[in-house]
Design a protein around this nucleic acid. Structure first.
Lengths: 201, 201
DNA sequence: CAATATACGGAACAAGGTTCCGTTTACAAG
DNA sequence: CTTGTAAACGGAACCTTGTTCCGTATATTG
């Protein structure tokens, strides 16, 4: 009666475990240096395995990308509550968005993966935004309730917008931060509409 | 004395002219319905020519894309002076940016072409921004001089940012306008916010 | 040690961009 | 109209990259 059917129906073979780790590491390095479009063959070679092994563990290219970045995304998401506790709602929101921006601008390829139209990356945006959505919603609602941010912006839209803005950042993380700062200012300070006329800042 | 050496060193052969026009039209339709990633073979077939002919007139895929959209971009650029004459600087800037947004969100594939990393689209961003840069610089400088916009934002950065924001718009032009509106608000009203120290990894 | 499920490697296939080159054609000079 | 020729044509062929398939190798378990 040593059968444990609850979880892990079958152990992972040791060589498989080793190869998965080698692949993740090789992919991480490759994405960081050559971008997410690094050919699968090349990643496989760097990891010392055949392409068949890659597809055994990561049925689609996007699964490999997702696996490489998942850890960092989770860390980013879990940082939200602390920020909310330590700062004013508006400032917490801004700090978190800048942190997210930094993640996108720093980890080369993350933004590209989130915006690529390649069918191989199908579903990645949703997969990546899922863990972040609750975090941002928390901050956004708090800021809106405190009158420190618009209430008419959806978390998903905002995540997508930041990801898009970070796309051209390439090696210039500063560009991303400047543009996201503009967006945040627009988020915090609703301008009078065109009809209301323009006043100087 | 019929020699006219001023321009057109050599006339274009009639069949070439016809094929170029057919290609541009086929590409326009294909981009609008299937996106900029429509295979070259398919565009060639729709135009009734061979792929060799496509590459004869448009050495790179991006040249075809550029040719298809150039006309609309020029029209957008040339609309700036009129807007500057008819409206307050800040409003003229906003109206022009929204028009640019509409162009990007409406012509399917334009935003994608401007943000794609495919080597085939190499240089397209620069090629497309070149005619728009002077137009936006005009509006931006005027608005900044009138105190109706920040003075620390570069025209090129802004063009790029708007193009990026329009990327996920897909069929939903409204998303693009909402996000660009946020950006514009941030452009017009500098927030007295925290220093740029909020970027933890 | 043997049996077997699991995993491995890489050849093979599909798709799309680009090149090459033998053939066809517009057009201008005679 | 004929004809010479530069220009253009078409599409087979090539290359790169994602993905699948399957015969072979091996970790694990009793």
């Amino acid at each position: 009666m040593s059968e444990n059917i609850t979880e892990t129906p079958r152990r992972v073979r040791s060589d498989a475990r080793r190869n998965i780790d080698a692949l993740l590491e090789a992919a991480r390095v490759a994405f960081a240096t050559s971008g997410v479009h690094t050919p699968v063959r090349e990643i496989a070679e760097r990891a010392g395995v055949g392409v068949g092994t890659v597809y055994r563990h990561f049925p689609q290219r996007s699964d490999l990308v997702a696996a490489v970045f998942r850890h960092e995304l989770d860390a980013c998401a879990s940082a939200a509550p602390a920020l909310a506790a330590e700062h004013e709602p508006g400032e917490a929101l801004e700090r978190w968005l800048q942190r997210y921006t930094n993640l996108l601008a720093t980890k080369r390829g993350l933004a590209a993966a989130l915006n690529s139209e390649t069918p191989a990356f199908e579903g990645l945006p949703g997969c990546f935004q899922e863990p972040l959505m609750p975090a941002l919603a928390l901050l956004l609602d708090a800021a809106a309730a405190a009158g420190q941010a618009r209430a008419d912006v959806k978390p998903g839209d905002l995540l997508q917008a930041v990801a898009s803005l970070c796309l051209p950042a390439g090696d210039d993380a500063d560009y991303a931060h400047r543009m996201v700062t503009l967006l945040i200012d627009g988020l915090r300070y609703t301008a009078p509409t065109l009809a209301a006329g323009a006043r100087s800042a």
